[in-house]
Simulated scan of single mutants.
Amino acid sequence: MSVEFEADAVVLDIEGTTSATGFVTEVLYPYSRERLGRLLVERGDESDVRRATDQVRELLGEPEADAARVEQALTGWLDEDRKATPLKTLQGILWSEGFARGELVSHFYDDVVPVLRRWRAAGLRQYVYSSGSVAAQRAWFAHSPNGDLLPLMEGFFDTENAGPKQSADAYRTITAAIAIRPGRTLFLSDRPAELDAARTAGWYTAGVRRPGEPYYDHGTGGHPEVRSFDHITVGSSVGQARPLPETSRGR
């Protein structure tokens, strides 16, 4: 279950890949649910809140929807775990503030941070692409149990500045932004549909399968498979991606 790639950049998913999905659903989701209504009512004039609220109205097709209706829609999407951009924007505001106040501390699997530090020291460029907003991603990495991890990362992408994670065009957008050709970029995720989209855009891919994660039983859809970041080797010399002979591929 080890894989080796020759690449100049790694782009990371968060939930199910670097971090436990259960932490997000059991800690962060309730935290934002309790505070969404007050955010909409008390801070509705703030630019980011107003923009997200207008996006909710547009998605609903209800331009006159009041704060109560907007909150109802948002909590419904939260229950569905729908990756709606305005929901992620508002959650990002609340989570960022919660992290800053010390009410929240993020989660990383034990194998992740040492590998990210090693890759960074070797000169590998590291990015995040998550359905959570950029603000939430930055807060997540800044307030980890291992301290501030922002210096390890060069950039952050979400569904607003890149696009839907199951669309190949989103990965092409990231390629243009980071100025690294597709054949030198590796994407790590637990979701086969995301890996498919990245591969369509010309990226290298590896599926991270962790027991207990929601997508564990889905396999990796034929992408190289690992159970830990310790099983991924990334070099930057010229060449093609080369899965090692013992690589296990998802069924």
Rank of each mutant, 00 (worst) to 15 (best):
G22Y: 09
A177S: 15
P182C: 04
S130P: 00
A9M: 08
D8Q: 15
R172A: 12
G44Q: 07
L39P: 02
E225R: 05
I232T: 08
P211M: 08
E213H: 06
P63K: 06
E246Q: 13
W203L: 05
G207A: 12
D169W: 13
I232F: 09
E26D: 15
P30H: 13
G183H: 09
A197F: 01
D148W: 03
E4K: 14
L59P: 13
V56T: 09
L244H: 00
T53L: 09
A73C: 03
E194P: 02
H218M: 08
P114F: 06
R69D: 07
R191A: 13
P182I: 03
R38P: 07
A67G: 06
S248G: 09
P243V: 06
F99E: 02
L40D: 06
P243C: 06
I180F: 04
F5E: 07
L104M: 03
T175P: 09
L60H: 11
A135M: 05
R57K: 13
Q55N: 14
R118Q: 14
F229T: 00
L94A: 07
H223Q: 07
T175L: 01
R242V: 05
T220F: 01
H107N: 08
Y109A: 04
V115S: 12
T247Y: 08
A162G: 05
S130V: 00
A168C: 09
P63D: 04
A9F: 00
D169A: 12
T25V: 15
A121P: 13
T205D: 07
G16C: 10
H218D: 12
A201S: 08
P30S: 05
W119Y: 12
R118L: 10
A139D: 08
R117F: 11
G61N: 07
W140G: 05
R199A: 14
V115I: 13
A193W: 06
A73E: 08
F187R: 01
E246D: 12
A121S: 14
A170E: 04
Q166L: 13
G163T: 00
S248N: 11
